[in-house]
Amino acid sequence: MKAAIVAIASLAALTALALLAPQWLVFMAMLALAKGVVVLGLLVLMRTGLVSFGQGLYFGIGAYTAALLSHHLHVADAAVMLLAGAAAAGLMAALLGLLLAGYRDIFFAMLSLAFSMILYGVLVKSAALGSTDGFNLHARTFFGVALAPGVERRVFLIAGAVCAVVVALLAHRLLGGHWGRLSTGVRDNELRVAYLGASPYRVVYVNYLIAGAMAGLGGALAALAVGHVDPEMTYWTTSGEFVFIAILGGTQSILAPFVAASIFEALRTIASQYAPNVWQMSLGLAMLAIIMFLPAGLWTLAERRRRSA
């Protein structure tokens, strides 16, 4: 019930933002949403105690699927691009998950990183796809309705908001119920979960699949927002950024990734504008401060306030 209220309120707020805010803010909100969806997937995976340093793989697959549809097959429908991006990433995750679900800890993290870097290497060598320069994509319709120039990004933001809210509600249901407790069980004591008759491999596999599909959706959203794809999206620094946002927000709440992604985008923009020579250091210091003072992420602030109230 409470989740539904928050969902409706968020959707209303984002729709208002999409209709009223200046273009640059609409764009930033869109990027924050796209990254929030990816990080939410990471959060699902982190419930099982696993951190992927390779979500850039699925982010990139989602983005390139959307862009290739536009570029080579001349499909210019945003809705098709979003669904195809999520599906393609989910498919790849279903395949690689078979292998990765058998690994834990640093081995899991490194293997996921390795797969994302393979895609990066392949894209960099593909001159037909523009190599490191990448290429543009254009979405001109949404569910077959032609978009007037100038409003398309506002429509994409509303579409992105609907995607994000639906995904967040699903994740909330999933993690709040039996599956969420099973995931935490795998993190805390895998052997015991197995003795109780559940399959840790299956739990990890399904969570990995969910994380992959969500990263693909996020990638397609980002590609629509930016209008350009390039191999940087699959590079390990992009994957690292998702982990950064996850740590920034903390893993306790479904809303945390979206709040953290908004703060991250705002922080980066403010740092770039007011400290163009030391913006990376500003971000690094923010990260250090959070790890030192709020080890469970920014969400601890909200929790603290609620407890004291």
């Binding site: 390039d230 940087e232 163009p276």
Partner: peptide
């Protein structure tokens, strides 16, 4: 008004949109 180009095209599009106004 000087800004840094580092960070890849995605970040640059965001910074460009912020710079335009």
């Amino acid at each position: 008004v000087i800004i840094d180009e580092a960070g890849g095209p995605q970040k640059q599009v965001a910074e460009y949109r912020n710079l335009v106004p």
